[in-house]
Amino acid sequence: MSRARDVVFLERRVYRHRRMIDAAKMLPILACVLFLFPALIIDRAPGEEPSTAVRLVYFFFVWLSLIMVAATTARALRRAGSGEPASDMSQPQDGAPD
């Protein structure tokens, strides 16, 4: 009985670990979009462009948010992977029940 629950627990943990890896992989793509997007919008009527101060606030806001997400992800990854950043292949044997 408890053995069965252990297995379920293990599956969940491996699953969580995989999803955290996905998140870690997606994050730079999101960051790319957020960082490069504002510079690529150029066809605005003169005088309607956002001011430098507004851009400044935007960049630091996005930057800080990304850092917080990255910190959360890295933390979850360390927990789920029991510290060892494992390769995609070796994850199953990685998460031995404790």
Binding site: A24, K25, L27, P28, F35, T52, R55, L56, F59, L66
Partner: peptide
Amino acid sequence: SGLEYLTIYLGPTLVFLGWWW
């Protein structure tokens, strides 16, 4: 040249956020 200096920091930020790759 205004906010252009930010790019020098945003590039490394991208690389570190994508550390898993």
